[in-house]
């Protein structure tokens, strides 16, 4: 699967976040389960491709989210996505992670991402929640959702990113 196709799949998941997925949630859960589907793909790119792919995917889809749902501020998700993608790639790209390792990394990186976003909003005085309340209210529940999604997407995402890398190196050899 080429990178373009992966981006198209990610776009579909991104647009499903605010529409189809939103309708799947009952009223009481909408503000508690926040999807990060595009971020999960960016993290898989960090694990199974390289850190630069993760950087660009994290930045691109973060920026897309910032602009499409622009209300207060631009650039928060772009910054957090790029930072988390790049750092994950820096730490993990040399190893071939197993399923369990991948899930732990995706979960932890998503938690870091949420925390970065929380504190950026805090710094710009747009957010006045207490951190421990936010943790219980939406960060941890969203983390469970992210685990579920990462588990579901592990096989296809790993295959796509490894193939897209393998194909490139073959081309280079030729």
């Amino acid at each position: 699967m080429s990178m373009t196709r992966i981006v198209i799949v990610m776009l579909l998941f991104f647009y499903a976040e605010g529409t189809i997925f939103y309708w799947l949630l009952p009223d009481a859960w909408t503000s508690r389960l926040v999807p990060h589907f595009a971020l999960a793909f960016a993290l898989y790119a960090a694990l199974y491709k390289n850190r630069y792919a993760a950087l660009f995917l994290g930045f691109g889809f973060g920026l897309l989210q910032d602009i499409v749902f622009y209300n207060n501020i631009l650039g928060v998700h772009a910054f957090a996505g790029a930072a988390v993608g790049y750092l994950t790639g820096l730490l993990m790209e040399r190893r071939r992670s197993t399923l369990l390792m991948a899930l732990v990394v995706v979960g932890f990186a998503t938690y870091v991402y949420d925390t970065i976003v929380f504190f950026i909003y805090q710094v710009f005085r747009l957010n006045h929640m207490a951190y421990d309340w936010a943790l219980i209210n939406h960060i941890l529940p969203s983390l469970f959702l992210q685990f579920g999604f990462a588990l579901l997407m592990y096989i296809p995402a790993r295959r796509w990113f490894e193939w897209s890398g393998a194909k490139k190196s073959e081309d280079e050899e030729e």
Partner: peptide, 14 residues
């Protein structure tokens, strides 16, 4: 309505 962002810090209705 065409989309909703349920990001808790930045709720938006499009």
């Amino acid at each position: 309505v065409i989309a909703v962002s349920n990001d808790p810090y930045n709720q938006t209705i499009r």
